[in-house]
Design a protein around this nucleic acid. Sequence first.
RNA 1: CGGGAUAUAGCGCAGUUUGGUAGCGCGCUUGAAUGGGGUUCAAGAGGUCUCGGGUUCGAAUCCCGAUAUUCCGACCA
Length: 560
Amino acid sequence: MKLKNAYFYTLREDARDEDSISGNLLVKAGYIKKTSAGVYMMLPLGLAVQNKIENIIRRHMNETGAQEVKMPALIAAEYYEESGRMKGFGPSIFKLKDRNDKDMVLGPTHEELFAYAAKSMIKSYKNMPFNLYQFQTKFRDEPRARFGLVRVKEFVMKDAYSFDADEKGLHESYMKMFNAYKKSFDEMGINYRIVKADTGVMGGLLSEEFQAIAPLGEDTVIYCDDCDYSSNLEVAKTVRGEKHEKKDPLPMQEVETPHCESIEAVAKYLHIDMKDTVKALLMNVDGEFVVFFINGERELNESKVLKLLKASEISFADDALIATSNAVPGYCGPIGLNCKVVIDEEVLEMSNFCCGANKKGFHCINVNPSDIRYDVCGDIVNAKEGDLCPNCGKPLKFTKGIEVGNTFKLGTKYSKAMGLQYADVENKLQDVWMGSYGIGLGRTMAAIVEQNHDEKGIIWPENIAPYKYIILIMSSKDETQNKVANDLYDKLTDKGVEVILDDRDERPGVKFNDAELIGIPYRITVGKKAGEGIVEFKARTAEAAEELSIEELLKKIGVE
RNA sequence: CGGGAUAUAGCGCAGUUUGGUAGCGCGCUUGAAUGGGGUUCAAGAGGUCUCGGGUUCGAAUCCCGAUAUUCCGACCA
């Protein structure tokens, strides 16, 4: 690409409406351009990067024997009605009608269509296993688009689907994909961790996420340095590091706590430790009013709650729902409460604790587990700093991650829903075992930028960079420099080397800054010594440039 | 959806409180100088002040409504 006659621009100032480093840099460097909230254009440089990522993944997919296909994005709603996910996705699915008033959707993910495609292929156990994949645009009406390409409403995903006769086969197919994912992300130079995760709207038996480590990550990744344990916070088992001291129960007592509607205020007012308090959360679980009691220092983990109660939705209860019980917001306690009560298992270990008295302006102290009535007890809180590894008991570490890939053992959930069956050896009909595997391309691009940048701009890893080299002409009016640079450009291009020639009539400073902003790995500067056949070579990450003859340069690049 | 902020030239912003000729920086065009880190000088072009109503002699400015963007809380590649 020669910049003088190319679609190429950079911005001098930060984008006002970008809230992440990667989003800002990609916009500023002219890789992407926002058209509306959560929808971006991929400009030439952006598409070049996306293609790099795509090709790495494609190669590793093909190595496993998977076959590439392309499903439509416009899909009759009936497929999602059949699987029950029209409801599952709720408002996140883009719905529309065709001219005959037929309900259509823009596909948010494609399990249904792949199961439908598999039906044509699968008659008996002899037709499996196989694996299909695609690179395809997904549409999800996210409640809140943010962080540049990290959370958007339209994005390209590589999604793969495996089909096996039994669980053992699924496991083998799963491991193939899992390893291909590892190879792909390793090749891209991403710093990531693989964690156990919630299966969420996908359902199924197992979900593992590939989390790119980055401070702006939306997920909390928990891991242990002493063993290989790692997990998403949403499913990590809580193993408390600090045990509660068992004390002899004292008589329960009601105390006045005026204007103390938060547990912090109560603890402060009564001069007690937060860890000796129990707080209440008044929630709406699938329309039912449920009160949760957990240690005052903990946070409720909604994924665990949904799993424990086999429910599908949870939110804070509104006043009308609260009014169906005798709960007093701000002073809610488990004693005498006439609604469903769920407690965290930690509460049973506590003694002489403090909680709401269910009476405005009052809390109880010296409450003990024997004083309270509950319907369900389980692990319903988030692990936190100081907690221990469920595997080996060493202290856990916490970090933030961007989920760039996800693998699911779906089991027979979708084949059951879609009637995908096969005849086994005894000619009995059996459900097909499916797996599904996704990688977000734009999100991967964003994660790479989050992990590879400095104050000057992006620093692409070589495998991902849109171009590997950029040639800068220092003085655009100097004939010798122009000739040397153009000859070099032609030679490299002929050899298939990806190179940009900055032949614009700009000052050197502009060219240096742009080259650094767009993050090309290697810079070749053609300047004053061009007449002697000498140019400069500098890696984006190097401190200083080195002078090389053209011959030495070509040798270094490996074309001669 | 709940709550806060913003919308003025390609980009980033002032002007709105107190109504009275549409502004600044960067970028862009032309010319000149310069040519190794966003250079300098000179002359220019560019706006339906988000949209729709209203008040007023007069509205970017005041009032009402809509839309969009964005930030803080529940989903996912």
